[in-house]
Design a protein around this nucleic acid. Sequence first.
RNA 1: GUGAGCGUGGCUCAGUUGGUUAGAGCGCUGGGUUGUGGUCCCGGAGGUCGUGGGUUCGAGUCCCACCGUUCACCCCA
Length: 428
Amino acid sequence: MTVKGLKGFKDVLPNEVHLWQHIENTARKIFHRFGFSEIKVPILEKTELFARSIGEATDIVEKEMYTFPDRNDISVTMRPEGTASVLRAYIEHGMHVLQSGQRLYTIGPMFRYERPQKGRLRQFHQMSVEAIGSGHPRVDAEVMAMAWTLMEALSLNVSLEINSLGCRECRPEFKKALVEFLDKRQDKVCADCNRRSKTNPLRVLDCKSENCQQQYVDAPSILDHLCGSCEDHFLEVREGLELLGIHYSVNSRMVRGLDYYTRTTFELITNDLGAQNAVGAGGRYDGLLEQLGGQDKPGVGFAVGMERLVLLVNEDIIKAEKRKPDVFLITLGEDAARKGFSLMHGLRGQGAKVSMDHDGRSMKSQMKLADKHGARYVIILGEDELANNEALLKNMVSGEQETVALSDDMGTCCTGIYERIRVRTINT
RNA sequence: GUGAGCGUGGCUCAGUUGGUUAGAGCGCUGGGUUGUGGUCCCGGAGGUCGUGGGUUCGAGUCCCACCGUUCACCCCA
């Protein structure tokens, strides 16, 4: 039996890696434009960090984390999300003194022990974005605008849904009202809903059962229970989005899976991901920093799922990378191989993308290899050429070929060859 | 954790009501006279039919278990 990869852990093969790079590159560009800086944080943290931030009673902490004792018997876990680590780093390095606000993002793998399905893996990758230091509703709008800009840049057909979850003041009251409402309907809704009404009542509202949804048509809405300041905040968030011309819809039943969210929450929704419909999601987490032992500073952020983006991004819209001259070097005989070997290195030094075969294949085989490499030029170095101190340069597209002189100075002759093929590459 | 579908060469799949040496396409590889690709033609390598039991004279084809995988529930990016 050969050793296989773990369930839910996937290799990203070379033929799809360009998609990942394209997504990351455009994201980085946009994030920087909005004033965010990259931070790299560890994958492993003390278990306590996630228990305190995400919430002890959440599914993530209760049954989905990769948690184990390290060799010194400290309980560590592989991060299931990015925000906690970034905030930990922010606090640990006293970043609050650097300037009044910090805008950070990080890109990397996250781990959750779940059953894999479409758009969901055990190791998955997120781009996680945090704007720390301001509680202004316009920052919420700005962060959403950034997420939206990324979706546009990737030509994704997604919609933005927003909601407010209230704060420590008003959410408990809403919860109470909701639980009262639910208690009266215990026998009319599904078993899952009854379970949820105890563990996470807000969750009940987005049950997928149509029957349950019918029961909930006049369930209390969080938006009717917001306290004055939360209501103002939400209004200003909406105003901010409108100022930027960003289309959104309010979904008062949207819930987040992590305990730390307060006030604004939002999701970027698509219909093209099977059961998973969120490509990205986030919200405000005032109070979380203090909870983690830092100063009481507010924050907003979001995460987007790389795998989900990769599933959605249309390969066709990615313009082919500007290709550098692509050369395949064909040699015949050992002497030519030696000469070609150093010629290849010299051309690479010039910036050309060059390959050659080392296994002494026939001319025909080497030509076939050149074709497979997508080489636009072939340099043929046979015994005749070697004898005359020259090489054959063949254009694989037009079929034309010409001889080029090889001087004794490898440097100048590589420059010469490179100039020839570079100019023609640009022209064609 | 629950449910359903699927598991045949590197990839995508055929394999009739169980019956002699398991097939195709793509890919890989060699060749079609002496040193030229992409098309075409010919040849070659590559499979203990997921694993282990069972039924049968005989199983890729039926039954059971396990494993893997996919999708969905739960939950979530």
